[in-house]
């Protein structure tokens, strides 16, 4: 072994470019998380609807966009929608005419599919009795959703949401295939210029790691703040979605919910 495989000078010189790449990654992530979540709500309502047609449509959406690899979704949107002539002249071309639009569409759809299931699982975990108690108090369905179901669902689903966001961030490293110069693309570019196989990739990896762990810490703090009422574990409601890998029974339930890894 010849010591560190990292060329420190190169690392320092390429840091500004890598940070620009990181900024792009953060943008891509933030936009897709936002749109994906916004999309997940109506799809989740359709999925939970008693009407057979919307429920079936929503389920098909989830199966397709969750089951297909992100890379294929990117290709599909980028190469596929560009082929539709009707789109070329329509207002949606702003979206599908640019690499950015395509990337955000593909990633948002993927995230929405995962979030639909997480949201559904969390809403179903809200105890029936708590909802009935709100109904008995004469609270309207809309207010029950906003003030009772959602606050509880967020608590039940937070860990699954965190896992999804973390693996989603890592998954965005493929957007370079539609010509977006995100962090991974910048690192790849530096490799192609310098043929240093370690320095740029390891630096980019370190930045991803920092980003992911920052997000993780943010979620942990959020979760701790939400759980401030849960000091007595015995009487707290059963957190069905909570990810505790050391608890076999919960592990099984997580498996059923089938979020992303863990």
């Amino acid at each position: 072994m010849t010591g560190l495989p990292i060329d420190l000078t190169l690392a320092r010189d390429s840091l500004p470019a890598l940070l620009v790449g990181l900024r792009t990654t953060v943008f891509v992530v933030a936009l897709s998380l936002l749109f994906g979540l916004a999309l997940a709500f109506p799809i989740c309502f359709a999925r939970m609807s008693k009407l057979r047609f919307p429920a079936l449509m929503a389920e098909t959406f989830v199966v397709f966009f969750r089951g297909a690899p992100v890379l294929i979704l990117l290709y599909l949107v980028y190469y596929g929608f560009g082929q539709i002539d009707a789109l070329r002249n329509g207002p949606l071309w702003i979206l599908f005419g640019s690499a950015w639009g395509c990337a955000i569409v593909a990633l948002s759809l993927n995230h929405a599919a995962y979030m639909t299931e997480i949201l559904r699982g969390s809403l179903l975990a809200v105890p029936r009795g708590i909802v009935e108690a709100s109904e008995a108090l004469g609270v309207s369905q809309r207010n029950i959703f906003l003030h009772v179901k959602m606050p509880l669902a967020i608590r039940y689903g937070l860990k699954a949401y965190q896992n999804e966001v973390v693996s989603f961030i890592k998954g965005t490293a493929v957007v370079s295939v539609v010509t977006i110069t995100d962090l991974a693309a910048v690192a790849n570019g530096i490799f192609e210029e310098t043929y240093d196989p370690f320095t740029p990739i390891l630096c980019a990896a370190a930045l991803y790691w920092a980003f992911v762990n920052l997000v993780r810490i943010g979620f942990d703090l959020w979760g701790r703040w939400l759980d401030r009422h849960k000091m007595d574990r015995e009487r707290a409601p059963v957190p069905v979605l909570q990810n505790v890998p050391t608890r076999g029974r919960l592990l099984r339930q997580i498996g059923r919910v089938r979020g992303r890894v863990l």
Partner: peptide
């Protein structure tokens, strides 16, 4: 922490680009 916090794509690139150098090392 490292391998759960880093995109798999980068690990693939690292092994592919740097694999020969690592094996020689």
């Amino acid at each position: 922490s490292i391998f759960m916090g880093v995109p798999s794509l980068l690990v693939i690139f690292l092994v592919y680009y740097g694999g020969s150098a690592m094996l020689i090392g």
